[in-house]
Each structure stands twice: as C-alpha cells, then as structure tokens.
Design a protein around this nucleic acid. Structure first.
Length: 286
DNA sequence: AGAGCTACCTGAAGGC
DNA sequence: TGCCTTCAGGTAGCTC
C-alpha cells in the first residue's frame, strides 16, 4: 500500500502523539513480521523516550533516548492505529473497515503528558518489518546502506537521477522501482511520474537523454501532490487519524486501464513489467 | 554487475 | 452459494 506520500502521511499523523512519548510496554503477538524482531526487542524499547518520528524512503525512523532508533516499514498492508490515542475523538474507528485483530502484531503502550494510550501495528500480509539499530549507524544499516537519494530534498537533482540511471538497459519503469535509484517510489507514483513526464515506461533507463529533467520534475511534483492530498487510498489505506487519502481520485493512469488518458483521451493501457502492472498512455508517453 | 524470477503472506474480487 | 484463479501499494535472495 504505502509509498513515500502514504508513509509521509502516516508520519505526520503519528508524530504529534509519539514525539516526546515514553514507551511503557511492547507486546508482540508473534516473533516476526517479514523478518524476525531483533533480540530482546521489547526490553530494548521499554522505558525509552521517542525523540522524533522521521522518514527515509518508505521507512519510518524513531530515534530513541537509548541511543537506538526504531525502524519501521509498512510493507504492503501495514497500518498503525491509535485506538484510544490522543486524538480528538478517541474511540472513533478510523478505518474504512475494522482491521482484523488477528493481524495486530505489535501493541505499544505509550505515556505522554500523564496520559497512557496504545499504538497498534496491524499488517495482514506481514510484509512490514521493525528493527532496532544504533542511531549513529543508521546510514550504514542494512536497510539504508544502499538506499538512493531522498526525493524532495536538495540532494535529489536531475543530475543525481541521471547518474543513478546511467548505463542501465532495463526499462525506466523497472529502474525507478529500485530504491537505490531514488528512495520511496513505488508502482503508483512511478506510473504517474512517467505519464506526467511523457516518458514511455518501456524506454531504456540509461537512454533518457535531456528528458531526464522532465522526469526529475515529474517525480517531485507527483510526490508533492500525493503528500498534499494525504496519500492515496486504494483498498484500505488511511492516515493515523483515519482520514483516507484523496490522491487516487487524481491518478492519470494508475489503475485506469481502458479509461481515457486525461491529456489526450486515448485509452490507458496496462502491461506487465517485471511481474507488476504498468499503466500508461501510448500516445502521450514516448 | 546486471537482470529476471521466485518467495514471503493474506484477502478481495472476478469467473464459472 | 461456492470453489478456483488472479491480483495487490514491497523487498530480498537466488540464479544465470
């Protein structure tokens, strides 16, 4: 579910509740998500104060008072709930459909300003992960060591993007899904960015030429628009406060096979690349 | 090294 | 109604 704009939406929803809170208890319903929880996961978290909630690519990162950072990835179906959290209307159910309790794998009990509340991590497919790494070694951790530039920051320039794609013979669609090229892009926003840039998903990644600037600008604008809309809601994504995203209503091509291209009205096509759906306009994207 | 496939896991939706 | 197949927003590990 979550790509950069969705993870950023979750971050913004959770940050006011989590930042400055102390972790009183952590209950695990099972020993692993996609990977095992690290040794003594709960013990290492209990008593820690959450200094901040940040994001890198599709990961959430919470630096702790203990010197370690809690790293969290939502996979495809991960979501956080604040069922009795410091939100204006506690008890309100925030999601389109109630999450199956069988898939609530982690329950944090947090304390902040004299209030105690729970933060529940629910993940049906269990493709998410949580890990603990020393805050001083985040950059070299296995999750981030090879991760590419962060879009929407000054480090992500057209030149940096071009360098990341140089020499690649694979399609630009498949290349942009590689988190080493740019962090945080997924299937939706890659499709949308390529459409916005007028670049065919089938074009060789290393042969964009000067159009790399258009693609760079499109990636930034599509991600910014996604964040501004509160992410996309397909199936069941919702922000921590339960509001659903609106960006799916603005998709130009994603999940719109057969519908008219908003630019030229020709039907949007669907093809499969590296086993994943690509949606594009064969007239607008060359 | 680069590129392509498979696996991980569950649920929803569509076809018959 | 029910069974079966296909597909889903992600990543990593394996082969060639």
């Amino acid at each position: 579910m979550p790509e950069l704009p969705e993870v950023e939406t979750v971050r913004r929803g959770l940050a006011p509740a989590l930042e400055g809170a102390t972790i009183d208890a952590v209950k695990l319903a099972r020993p692993d998500l996609r990977i095992p929880f690290p040794p003594e996961f709960s013990r290492r978290l209990e008593g820690a104060r959450i200094a901040a909630l940040t994001r890198r690519g599709k990961y959430l990162v919470a630096p702790l008072s203990t010197g370690e950072s809690l790293i969290m990835h939502l996979g495809m179906t991960g979501r956080f709930l604040l069922p009795n959290g410091p939100i204006e209307r506690p008890g309100e159910f925030y999601y389109l459909s109630p999450p199956d309790p069988a898939h609530s794998h982690v329950v944090f009990t947090l304390r902040s300003g004299g209030r105690r509340f729970e933060l529940v991590y629910n993940d049906a497919r269990r493709f998410g992960l949580m890990d603990l790494v020393p805050s001083s070694a985040l950059r070299t951790s296995r999750h981030f060591a090879r991760m590419g530039p962060e879009p929407l920051t000054p480090e992500f320039t057209a030149g940096v993007l071009a360098a990341g794609l140089a020499g690649k013979t694979m399609s630009i669609k498949v290349a942009l899904l590689d988190q080493r090229v740019a962090a945080g892009l997924g299937n939706i926003y890659v499709c949308e960015a390529l459409h916005a840039a007028g670049v065919s998903p089938k074009r060789a990644a290393g042969r964009l030429g000067p159009r790399i600037s258009d693609l760079h600008a499109a990636i930034c604008s599509v991600l910014e628009a996604g964040i501004a809309a509160g992410g996309s809601t397909l199936r069941d994504f919702a922000a921590a406060d339960g509001r659903t995203g609106a960006f799916q209503e603005r998709f130009a091509v994603y999940d719109r096979e057969g519908e008219p291209c908003p630019a030229c009205a020709k039907p949007v096509r669907r093809i499969v690349q590296a086993g994943r759906s690509t949606f594009y306009c064969s007239a607008c994207q060359r």
